[in-house]
Structures are given as structure tokens and as C-alpha cells.
Nucleic acid binder design. Structure first.
Length: 1122
RNA sequence: GCGGGAGUGGCGGAAUGGUAGACGCGUUGGUCUCAAACACCAAUAACUUCACGGUUGUGCGGGUUCGAGUCCCGCCUCCCGCACCA
């Protein structure tokens, strides 16, 4: 036992954590007189790597806010849970044969330990896990409600399918403004009754908000599953980087497009970062324009195009269809058939990457057919080209070469006429001019008009003559909702008669079945097909009785709707799927609900049906979890209306920006839907969103070029040469005037160069021009040169050396060297690099001073497995790059070590001190000593530090707790109140880094004042409590309190204590700082002027000039204008 | 190409239109020590001056203002997102 108190985080921190737990300090009640505050972190996917130092950044920031709000008298909901369905656990299961839950639970336990260690104030009694059946019961429940509703544009909300049925029965779908599939035909009430039950249900599928349907989907063969658009980046899967192909499949979909406008409008009412809103707007991609129909000469069909520039219609000189367009084959004349077929085939074989790569090259083919211009009647040739995308609009565009550069390029290439349409257009021989200025020429109806006049006139004309209409087009696609995986929520639907049916609400949750292997079956079905008895026996279902023998399907046909002969169907009207009675917020939400039970009989059945085999995607469970925290144990509803009435919506939501168009858009979609049903209180679930920055790690790696790389282009730039060392593996680093770092080396068999950028050819052209503008010369080594030289590295070395000596950058465009000979280090290649390099990440422990320990690496088998060629000298210099922390990059830093070494409080404050929460920054521990020192100094204010210097002089039996009850001085009070003011204001604007600075400043001042008075220190402990809760709790109890500091009262500052008796005025002469002047607070301006003019430095600066103006900004500054 | 954001010491970063660089790291010098570490004290934008001081400084060029890192106009660069989206 020491005889004075030392700051020992390792002792006090666990002690208080246990105490908080025993006291249930963080338990939150749904009943309170206090105002509520809901602060939410995006819950993590519990990965096997555990929590790294990047995760807690947001958790700590939100924890500080939560603790602060609590001290300000709010009842704060601050929960945490796990997004525990996901791919890694499933892959682990495939490898080990263990149930994915095993790995999931283990990872969750590890996360929990780590989270606890940081002292976060989560109410763990409210924990949610998306993979828990009691939770996913409600995910399934929401899915079923989506199935039971359609979107009505006139009501501007989701309505029950039953209403649609009534409507169809009275007026058909004519004149109806409901969101449905594009190919939905118009029909009358008579038509509706003429349909048999199955046809009616299939029609309804075109309207339901979730539905199975044929569509082009992103199919990833490596993952054996489909992916949604936001899960695909640059043509490969976001997870794993596997190739993705477009494939027509029958899958469950979410009709998110129904909410496109509302999701767009909703952005205006929420306080989210502009970049996120922009990304969502971009993703939704609304563009307003017109659709125009072109009649095909000598053919019945018509081609519809979408355009945002209908005013340019008179400039149309050709039409272009996507090669996949359904009319291509029909329209192609015999004379053109060879050309067109070849082109279609060629275009189909091109990958997305290739297509994006050369957008400059004009390709296409003439079909031989013509359309009639709707205004002039002129014959307009129809082409096909792959710059027109099949997936956007109608897959056809009108070519206006005078106003659109792509059309212009196309016209030039195929020698098509270019017609100017505006008098303000520039020379159209050089380029297209997309201007909207000026008056129209060569434009029939609209000659002489301006843009606005022309547009409205033309749209009016299109509509009255029935050749088109004003139209709004979206980029947003309906979201594919099926995943062919095991570890996800089973879709609560079964199949019968080629139609999906919902299981009964009472049978929820539909729990994942036990299976022997977590792989797809041999004939390619999802893993759920392995389950025995994966069938459902409807309770009192109203499904159509049919002759079962004919529709019992092989499992492999599950995703296809089979054709069923009419004879097989006993035709009776089918009731809609029941709507459940739900307690509702708004009265009108239930008003129009009605079931059709009275119209349509139901037939009890006891036969089992095959259940849906696919599961839901990862984003299903995370699209509504914020409500579950409010009422986590409820088994009657996903959340009780009472709980929602109290907590409303999330006040502050914190998480990474990588979810901008995934989770954050889907959640908003589901929330809008639930709002329409009156099930949730607010349109938008999160009022304010804060994106925490990513904490990146340092990755060591080497690159290995793939064969295909050498057909591509490489741009290398070395800015300042160093040739001090010329050993077999010389390496040097430096900093050039421009501030670039580089390193390169020549080896007997190796050439290592820093690659600064890699671009496509046309990009290189641009870069070359930039470089020339910078007056830097560049050396281009031709393909031939490199090919010749690649087997003689010393020759290349000489060339490069010559280039470097003259400070030239250079471009290398090798065509076919042997790839082992070119190692490329530290590169910025990302966009295209999946095709170009294999990036071999190297474990940190294998690298010392940037040099790879090859022996260890071999022992570790890190390179054997990558078939990496090791430098013969046994040394290899590793480059590094700052990138995302990830297990696969061997660059994860866990918070555990930090907590062990410095304590949780120090770790918390250090993470905050790194900079604004929103900023991304590489992890570095330099600077943590500053925070550590601060905590010890702060602690030292409470204890007599003399004892530390000279323990012998102190009595052995005193604890030397040295806080006095004496009255504080004005200086002490000013220090305290300044700190209160700044910390309070800074937390409110979420500026945690400056809060920490303020604490440091305050502590330093108190130390120099030699202050240790209760009246000052006690409020400071409360201020510090959100940031460093453990030490605050310890000191709080030292100060004699028995209850937790978490329930203390946040101190308020008093302006009076901030006042000084004198003011130091900065004095400027002609706007330049010349000195300072100290005056009493109540000095009049005239006196200040007299005093200022008497100052030596003022006289000197004025140099005798007459003063024109004397400005005093009270309390701020003095400026003398001469 | 379109959209969003940002450019401030050696570094992370501070600055309601009012002394640019708070706070911390790093560096340098000092105290303590046999010594080292820790700790403590001091200095630290650049240039210039023996010094007092002076000059220049928030990506570049203009402007508004008594006064601009901050506001306005025109550029440059970097990062992020989207991208033959008609």
C-alpha cells in the first residue's frame, strides 16, 4: 500500500466497471418525466478479427454525447447490438462444418469483452441480434406486410392489396396511378373477372412492394448468390472482389422504386451530411424529360426513347438502340444482318471493365431500318451501339449530334448529318455544343423560341398527338432481395401453384432449419434445399385448391414459374392475402383497410407446400433495428406503440459513410413504408446523422503483376533520383520539392519502382499535357523498347537512370515482359487494379524498418501460397500504404493493447484528440503520451504531489487527498468557467478534439495557480465524466459522493466569472498588428484613444501621419487608420 | 465528364469577419541524475537583425472591408462518390 495516491487506471477502471454493472447504472426505462434522447451507433457485424481501433471512434464519440445528455437531464437511450447474419460466418461454417451460429456467438462474445473494456454506457439489457429468431421474426413480419401492400401514387402512400383488388373489380387498372412493373398491361374490370385465380394473383405480383420476378440481376458465381447493385463495385463483388455477371433470374425484389420521390424529398427534412444526401440523390438518379415515340417505317412496332432535351428533337439525325434491345433482330435488314450480328456478339462479349475503359472509341452498326421523325416525318436511320445502355430508360436514344458529344462522335464516325438547332451554337465541326441559350433554328414548330418555351410547347404537342409525353426517369432499380445462402432470414413464403404465398403470422418466426452442409446442393440450389421437410402446412389458408400432381415441382424449378395447363386449375376467385389487424398511430391508416373475406371464401387445407429456398440479404435485419431497441423483448409487435410514442425516432445516428446507399437508403425505404401503415411515428427514422471517419491502418505489401497487366498501361513517375547506393537491392527514399515520397531499387533480377498512378490511355494523354504545363519533360519508353529490354534489367536501369538524372518522369508501356521480373511497389492503383495486380499484404510482424524478413515470411507461408518470388539476397523492401483496417490486410490494431497500456480513459480521450470525428486518419500512437500526461496531471490536482517528490517528508498514515474547501479565487473561477463554457459548446457541436484541448488548458492553468479547491475541482470532475468516466467516478467518490457521477448535474457557467478587470487590446495600425494595450474594463473610448496614441509603438508605426479614423471594437481590438 | 468535400508549421490539428498556428506530438536547450529513463522548466511559422525591431506568411489571382484563413468572383490541386444515365 502506497502512502500517497497514484493514478493507476488498471486498478480503478475494472473496479468501477463492475460497480456500474452491479448498480445497473446504464439501465434505461421507457417511463420517465425527463425529455428523451435517442443516440444510436450503427451496430457492427461481429467479424472474427475482433474490434479494431477504428470501430470505437464513433462509439466513444456517441458515448460522450450520451453521457453528456444524461448529465443535462435527459433520459438517454443508447443501445448496442449485432448485425449478426452475414457471409463470413457462413464461409466459416462451410469450412469447418460448424453451424454459423458457433462462430457468430464466439465473435459476439469477443466484441462484447472489447466494448466493455472501453467503458461504454450501453444499456445491454436492450441488446439485439439480427440472427436471433425472436428478432428476425419481425424482419419476416415486415417482409410480409410489404407483400400485402402496393404503392398508390394518388394517395402517395402504400395501401393494402385488398384495395387494389376492389379497384380492379370495379374499374380495372385503367387510369390508375399505382406503381407496378413496366410491362403491366391495361385491363378493365371485365378483363379482371375473366382472369382465373392464378392470373389474378400474377397480376397482383406486379404491384406488391415485394414480389418474385424475372429481372436482370448481378449473379456472382464465386459466391453462388445474387447481389444488389450497392453490393457490386466496379464490376466485382464488394465482398471478396469476385466477378459478377448479369443474368436473368427469378428472384424476390423490393419495389423501392415506388418510394423514389419520397426518398428524395425526405432528404430535405433531415440533418445528414451533404455528401450522403448527394450520394442518395445520385443513386436515385431522377431526371425529368420526355418520352418520345418513333414509328418504324414499314413495321408495326414503335421505338420509345427517353430524353432530357426534347427541345433538340429537330436535331435528331439517327436513333441508337442498345445491342440487347428486343427489336434489334426484327429491325435488321438482310443486307445488314452480318454486320449487326457480329456487332451484337462482339458487344455481348465485352466485359463492363472493358466497356468503361475505352469510352472514346466509337463502335456500332446500322440496322438498315428507319423510323419516322414524329415532327418532320423524315426517315431517321436506326443504329445499334453499346454506348446505349439496355438497363436505363428504354434502351434506346435519339441521336442529336449537334447537342450531345457522344452523339456527335457517333455521327462523325458514321458520316451522319449534324444539324444546328440553336443560333447560339458554336462551330459544330469541332464539337457538339449542348447549350440551351439562344433561339431555335431549323426547328419547325419552335423556330425562334427559347428553351423554356420550346420545351413546354413540344411536350404539349407530344401529348395531344399521342406520340409521347413528359416523363421522369430514375436510375434507381428495384432491389434484389433473395440471397442463395443459409445464414440469413428465411423468406416466410411458400410456393404453390407457381405462386408465392405467405405463411401465417402465427407461424412466425420461420426458423432456419438444421442442415448437414452449408453449401449449395449438387444441382446448384441454395443450401436451404438440403433441409429435410422444408415445407409448410398452411393453417386455414385461402390458397387455391388445385390438382397437386401437376404442379409439384422438382426443387431445381423453384425459381421458375411453371406453365400450368388450364385444366389443372379449379378456378375460383382468390382472396387477397390477409391483412393483419395492427395498432396504428394515425387514424386514417386503418380507415381504408378492408378484407375481402366476405367476398371470397377460404378453404382450410392441410397439405404441406415447399418453402422458399432463398434467404434475405444482409440489409434486411438492419433496416429496422433501431425500433427494436425501444422494446427489445416484445413478442406481440416489433415494438410497442407506447415505446415508439416515447422514443419517437433517432436523434443522433453515428456511423460510417460506406453505408450511404445501402443500409441508409433501405432503412429509409422501410421506414417510409412502416410510416404509411401507421406503424412508426416519423417519416424519417434518423433526424441527424454523423459520419465518423475511418481510422486507417498501415499496410505493408508488395505487388505482383498479373499477366493481363502487360496488355494495359502503366504510368510511372519518379520525381527525384537518388543513386547513393547501387547494391544488388539498393533502395532509397526521399522527399522532393513537390513533397512526394518515392522509393525504387534495382536488383540483379528485379526492378522495383514506385507507381504513382495507373490510368487508361486517354488519361495518360491528359497527364502528359499536365506535366508539360508544369514544364517537366517526360520520357516515353515504347512498347518495343520495353519488350526488348525486359530481359535485360540493366539496360532498362540505364535508361531510367538517364531519365532520372535529367529529372524526367517517364511512361512505360510494356507489352509482354515476364511478370516475375517486374515488382511494383506502393501504388495508387485501385480503380482498375483488380485486373492488373495481385497485392500481397504482409503481416506487420514480418517487417522491420521496411525490410521484409524473408525467412519469417517463408516460415509463415505467406509467400509460398502466393507463389511469390523472393529476392535472392533474402531481403525485400516493403512498401506501405495507408488503407482500411482489415484482417486480410494484416494491419489491424486492436484496442485491447492500448487499454492495457494506458487505460480505457486515456484510450477514449486519445481517440477523440486525434481530430474531428468526421475525419479519416491513419492510426498512430504518437501523441498518446500527451493525453496520458494530462490524466495524471488532472489526478495530481486532487492529491498532494509533494509526497511524490519527497515521500520521506510525509506522514505515512495519510492518503494525502489534498482538496480543500477554501473559497476559490477569481482566477480559479475564471479558469473553471471558461472550461465549462467551452466544453459545453464544443460537445454541442460535436467537436470532441477541442474538448480535450480545453481540459488540458484548464488543468495546466490550475496547476500553475497551484489550485486544489473543491469548488473548482468538483464541477470539473462532472465535465470530465463523459470523456473519462472511470477516473471521474473514482475522484467523485474521493470527493465524498456515494452515488454515481453519471447522475450528477452538468455545471453551468456564469458570465460574471469570465470577466477580467482589464482587457488586453491588440492594437493595429492600418490593419497590421503593432502591439497590445492593457486598459481597465470601464475605460471610455476617448481615454483608450488617448492611451493608444501615447504608445511608443503606435507613434513609431504612424511615422507622423495624421489619424483618419480610430476604431475600437469593445473587448476585441483597436485599429488606427492613418 | 457530373456531383460533394478539402487545401493552415516538421506532424495531428485550433481559430462567432478582430493578436493565425489553441492543444498535443516532434525538435532544441536547461533542471534533476554517476548515467539513462521518467518528470519538470523554457524555446519552437519562415526570412532578416548582435539586438530593439522589421518583412512575408492559411493552394493561386483578383475583390469587398478600418480589418479576410473566414465573405464574393475567377482559377489550381487533392480526396470521396457517380459515370457513355441520353
Amino acid at each position: 500500500m502506497v502512502d500517497y495516491m497514484e493514478y493507476t487506471p488498471h486498478e480503478i477502471e475494472p473496479k468501477w466497471r463492475q460497480w456500474w454493472q452491479a448498480q445497473q447504472t446504464y439501465r434505461v426505462s421507457n417511463q420517465s418525466e425527463k425529455p428523451k434522447y435517442y443516440i444510436l451507433d450503427m451496430f457492427p457485424y461481429p467479424s472474427g478479427a475482433g474490434l479494431h481501433v477504428g470501430h470505437p471512434l464513433g462509439y466513444i464519440a456517441s458515448d460522450i454525447l450520451a453521457r453528456y445528455k444524461r448529465l443535462r437531464g435527459f433520459n438517454v437511450l443508447h443501445p448496442m447490438g449485432y448485425d449478426s447474419f452475414g457471409l463470413p460466418a457462413e464461409q466459416y461454417a462451410i469450412q469447418t462444418g460448424n453451424h454459423p451460429e458457433v462462430a457468430t456467438v464466439r465473435n459476439i462474445n469477443r466484441y462484447r469483452e472489447q466494448l466493455d473494456e472501453i467503458g461504454l454506457s450501453f444499456d445491454w439489457s436492450r441488446e439485439v441480434r439480427t440472427s436471433n429468431p425472436a428478432y428476425y421474426k419481425w424482419t419476416q413480419w415486415i417482409f410480409m406486410r410489404l407483400f400485402e401492400h402496393y404503392y398508390d401514387r394518388d394517395a402517395n402512400k402504400a395501401l393494402p392489396i385488398s384495395q387494389l383488388v376492389s379497384r380492379f373489380a370495379t374499374r380495372g387498372n385503367a387510369g390508375m396511378n399505382a406503381v407496378c412493373d413496366d410491362d403491366t398491361p391495361a385491363f378493365s374490370a371485365e378483363d379482371w373477372f375473366a382472369m382465373d385465380a392464378r392470373e389474378q394473383q400474377q397480376m397482383l405480383l406486379k404491384y406488391r412492394l415485394t414480389y418474385p420476378g424475372e429481372a436482370y440481376v448481378n449473379w456472382c458465381p464465386a459466391l453462388g448468390s445474387v447481389l444488389s447493385n450497392d453490393e457490386v463495385k466496379d464490376g466485382v463483388s464488394e465482398r471478396g472482389g469476385h466477378p459478377v455477371e448479369r443474368k436473368m433470374m427469378n428472384q424476390w425484389n423490393m419495389r423501392i422504386t415506388a418510394y423514389a420521390d419520397r426518398l428524395l424529398e425526405g432528404l430535405n427534412e433531415i440533418d445528414w451530411p451533404e455528401s450522403i444526401k448527394e450520394q442518395q440523390r445520385n443513386w436515385i438518379g431522377r431526371s425529368v424529360g420526355a418520352s418520345v415515340r418513333f414509328d418504324i417505317a414499314n413495321h408495326d412496332a414503335r421505338i420509345e426513347v427517353f430524353t432530357t432535351r426534347v427541345d433538340t428533337i429537330y436535331g435528331v439525325t439517327f436513333l441508337v438502340l442498345a445491342p440487347e434491345h428486343e427489336l434489334v433482330a426484327e429491325l435488321t435488314t438482310d443486307a445488314q444482318r452480318t454486320d449487326v450480328d457480329a456487332y451484337v456478339q462482339w458487344a455481348g462479349a465485352r466485359s463492363d471493365v472493358e466497356r468503361m475503359a475505352d469510352t472514346k472509341k466509337v463502335t456500332g452498326a446500322f440496322t438498315g431500318s428507319y423510323v419516322q421523325h414524329p415532327f418532320t416525318g423524315a426517315a431517321v436511320p436506326i443504329y445499334i451501339a453499346d454506348y446505349v445502355l439496355a438497363g436505363y430508360g428504354t434502351g434506346a436514344v435519339m441521336g442529336v449530334p449537334s447537342g450531345d458529344q457522344r452523339d456527335w462522335n457517333f455521327a462523325k464516325h458514321f458520316h451522319l448529318p449534324i444539324v444546328p438547332i440553336l443560333d447560339a451554337q458554336k462551330d459544330l465541326e469541332e464539337a457538339a455544343d449542348p447549350t440551351k441559350e439562344g433561339r431555335y433554328i431549323n426547328s419547325g414548330l419552335i423556330n425562334g423560341l427559347d428553351y423554356a418555351e420550346a420545351t413546354s410547347l413540344l411536350i404539349g404537342y407530344l401529348e395531344t398527338n399521342n406520340v409521347g409525353k413528359g416523363k421522369t426517369q430514375y436510375k434507381l432499380r428495384n432491389a434484389v432481395f433473395s440471397r442463395q445462402r443459409y445464414w440469413g432470414e428465411p423468406v416466410p413464403a411458400y410456393w404453390h401453384d407457381g405462386l408465392p404465398h405467405l405463411i401465417d403470422d402465427e407461424d412466425l418466426p420461420l426458423v432456419l432449419p438444421a442442415i448437414d452442409k452449408y453449401l449449395p446442393t449438387e444441382n446448384g440450389e441454395p443450401p436451404l434445399a438440403r433441409a429435410e421437410n422444408w415445407t409448410y402446412t398452411p393453417r386455414q389458408t385461402a390458397e387455391t385448391p388445385v390438382a397437386f400432381a401437376s404442379v409439384e415441382r422438382e426443387p431445381s424449378e423453384i425459381f421458375v414459374v411453371p406453365d400450368i395447363a388450364e385444366d389443372d386449375i379449379i378456378s375460383i376467385p382468390v382472396p387477397p392475402y390477409d391483412t393483419v389487424q395492427i395498432e396504428s398511430f394515425s387514424q386514417d391508416a386503418t380507415d381504408d383497410e378492408q378484407t375481402q373475406d366476405d367476398l371470397l371464401p377460404s378453404h382450410p387445407l392441410t397439405l404441406s407446400r415447399p418453402l422458399e429456398l432463398s434467404t434475405m440479404p444482409g440489409w434486411a435485419g438492419s433496416s429496422w433495428y433501431f425500433y427494436r431497441y425501444m422494446d427489445p423483448a416484445n413478442d406481440q409487435a416489433f415494438c410497442s406503440p407506447e415505446a415508439m410514442r416515447y422514443w419517437q425516432a433517432v436523434d443522433v445516428y453515428l456511423g460510417g459513410s460506406e453505408h450511404a446507399v445501402g443500409h441508409l437508403l433501405y432503412s429509409r425505404f422501410w421506414n417510409h413504408f412502416l410510416y404509411d401503415l401507421g406503424l412508426v411515428p416519423e417519416r424519417e427514422f434518423a433526424k441527424k446523422l454523423i459520419n465518423q471517419g475511418m481510422i486507417q491502418g498501415r499496410s505493408n505489401f508488395v505487388f505482383r503483376a498479373k499477366e493481363s497487366f502487360f496488355e494495359q498501361y502503366l504510368w510511372m513517375k519518379v520525381l527525384q533520383p537518388y543513386f547513393e547506393e547501387e547494391g544488388p537491392m539498393a533502395q532509397s527514399k526521399s522527399q522532393s520539392e513537390e513533397g512526394y515520397k518515392y522509393d525504387f531499387a534495382f536488383g540483379a533480377n528485379n526492378l522495383v519502382i514506385e507507381v504513382t498512378s495507373y490510368k487508361m490511355p486517354e488519361k495518360i494523354e491528359r497527364i502528359r499535357r499536365t506535366a508539360e504545363a508544369d514544364r517537366k519533360r517526360m520520357l516515353v519508353l515504347s512498347t518495343e523498347e520495353i519488350t526488348d529490354d525486359i530481359n535485360h534489367p540493366e539496360t532498362i536501369a540505364a535508361k531510367i537512370r538517364a531519365a532520372l538524372n535529367s529529372r524526367e518522369a517517364f511512361i512505360v508501356t510494356p507489352s509482354r515482359p515476364s511478370c516475375e521480373q517486374l515488382y511494383v511497389s506502393q501504388s495508387l492503383l485501385y480503380k482498375y487494379n483488380a485486373d492488373v495486380f495481385t497485392k500481397l499484404h504482409v503481416d506487420v510482424s514480418l517487417v522491420e524498418n521496411d525490410v521484409l524478413n524473408v525467412e519469417k515470411a517463408k516460415a509463415n507461408q505467406q509467400f509460398d501460397k502466393a507463389n511469390f518470388k523472393i529476392d535472392p539476397n533474402g531481403q525485400f523492401t516493403c512498401s506501405y500504404e495507408v488503407e482500411k483496417m482489415s484482417k486480410s490486410k494484416y494491419n489491424v490494431v486492436n484496442p485491447d493493447d492500448m487499454v492495457r497500456e494506458y487505460g480505457a480513459d486515456c484510450f477514449r480521450m486519445y481517440e477523440m484528440f486525434l481530430g474531428p470525428v468526421e475525419n479519416s486518419k491513419p492510426w498512430s500512437t504518437s501523441g498518446i503520451t500527451g493525453v496520458s500526461g494530462f490524466l495524471r496531471k488532472f489526478w495530481g490536482l486532487f492529491f498532494d504531489s509533494a509526497a511524490k517528490r519527497n515521500p520521506a517528508a510525509e506522514p505515512a498514515d495519510t492518503s494525502l487527498f489534498a482538496v480543500s474547501d477554501a473559497a476559490p479565487t477569481a482566477d480559479e473561477l475564471r479558469t473553471l468557467h471558461t472550461c465549462i463554457k467551452k466544453v459545453t459548446e464544443d460537445i454541442e457541436r460535436f467537436s470532441m478534439n477541442t474538448c480535450v484541448s480545453n481540459f488540458m488548458t484548464c488543468t495546466n492553468e490550475l496547476r500553475s495557480l497551484n489550485s486544489s479547491k473543491r469548488a473548482v475541482l468538483e464541477p470539473l470532475v462532472v465535465l470530465l465524466a463523459p470523456f473519462a468516466p472511470h477516473v471521474a467516478e473514482e475522484l467523485w467518490h474521493h470527493l465524498g459522493h456515494e452515488t454515481t457521477v453519471c447522475d450528477a448535474e452538468w455545471p453551468t457557467y456564469d458570465e460574471a466569472h469570465l470577466q477580467l478587470s482589464t482587457i488586453q487590446y491588440p492594437v493595429q495600425v492600418n490593419g497590421k498588428m503593432r502591439g497590445t494595450l492593457e486598459v481597465a474594463v470601464d475605460t471610455s473610448n476617448a481615454d483608450i484613444e488617448a492611451m493608444a496614441m501615447a504608445q511608443e509603438f503606435v507613434k513609431r508605426s504612424l511615422q507622423g501621419s495624421a489619424v483618419k479614423k480610430f476604431i475600437v471594437v469593445p473587448g476585441r481590438i483597436i485599429n488606427i487608420v492613418a
